[in-house]
Computed example of a mutant assay.
Amino acid sequence: MPTDAQLLLLDAGNVAQLMEPAKVFEAMKRAFTLHSQREGRVFPVVREQLHTGGVFGIKSGDIPRADLLGFKAAGFWPNNRSVGKEPHQATILLIDPHTGRPVCLIDGNTITTVRTGAAGALGLTLLARPQSTSLCIFGTGTQARIQLSFALRYMPKIDRVRYLTALGQPDEPFEEEFGGLCALAHARDADAAVSASDIVVTATPGFGPLFSPAAVRAGTHINCVGADTKGKRELPEGLLRRSRVFTDDRAQSRSIGEGQWDVECLATEIGDVLTAKVQLTRDPEDITVFDMTGLALQDLVVAEMLLQLAEAKGQGSSLAWSW
Rank of each mutant, 00 (worst) to 15 (best):
K230I: 15
A166N: 11
E285I: 06
L181V: 04
C182H: 07
A296L: 10
S132A: 02
S197R: 00
T52Q: 12
V201C: 11
S134V: 01
G75R: 04
V45A: 13
T125P: 02
Q37R: 15
A144C: 05
V200K: 02
L68K: 01
V42S: 04
L306N: 05
Y154A: 05
F76I: 09
T247V: 12
W321M: 10
L10E: 02
G120D: 03
G13S: 06
R47M: 12
M292K: 11
R241T: 12
D62V: 10
A214D: 09
R30Y: 13
S132K: 00
A310Q: 09
R244K: 09
L7D: 02
A192L: 14
L69A: 14
L124C: 13
A118Y: 12
S82R: 03
F211K: 00
T110W: 04
R188C: 12
E258N: 11
A227R: 05
G271Q: 07
I95R: 08
L235V: 07
G208W: 03
I106L: 13
D248M: 03
S60I: 02
V15Q: 14
E39S: 14
A22I: 02
H35C: 13
D62A: 13
H98W: 02
D283W: 00
V42E: 12
I95W: 00
P64T: 05
L181Y: 07
I222T: 01
R244D: 03
L34P: 04
Y154N: 11
G179L: 01
N223H: 08
Q37T: 15
T165R: 04
D189P: 03
A310G: 13
A267Q: 13
L167Y: 06
T91S: 06
M28G: 10
S60V: 05
Q49R: 04
V201I: 09
I146L: 08
R101N: 01
V55K: 05
G316F: 09
D198W: 05
L68A: 06
G54T: 01
L309V: 00
M1K: 07
L122I: 07
T140P: 14
S197Y: 08
D198M: 10
P44G: 12
P44L: 15
R38L: 07
T293K: 09
T281E: 11
L239R: 08
L300M: 06
L94V: 11
S36N: 10
L34I: 00
Q17S: 15
F71N: 06
A303S: 15
Q131D: 14
S197N: 10
I95G: 00
L34M: 10
P173C: 03
W321A: 13
T247A: 11
L164Y: 08
D62Q: 15
T293C: 08
P170M: 05
A190L: 09
I256N: 07
L319T: 04
G13H: 00
F150G: 06
L306C: 09
A166V: 08
T113Q: 01
H88I: 08
L34Y: 04
G117P: 03
A74R: 08
A183T: 14
S132I: 00
P87Q: 00
Q147E: 07
D228M: 02
R217M: 12
L164F: 15
G238E: 10
V24D: 06
L266P: 10
R38S: 11
V45L: 10
E304G: 06
K157Q: 06
P156H: 02
L148T: 01
V161M: 01
C265T: 12
F178P: 01
A16S: 00
C265Q: 13
A90K: 10
Y154F: 07
L105T: 12
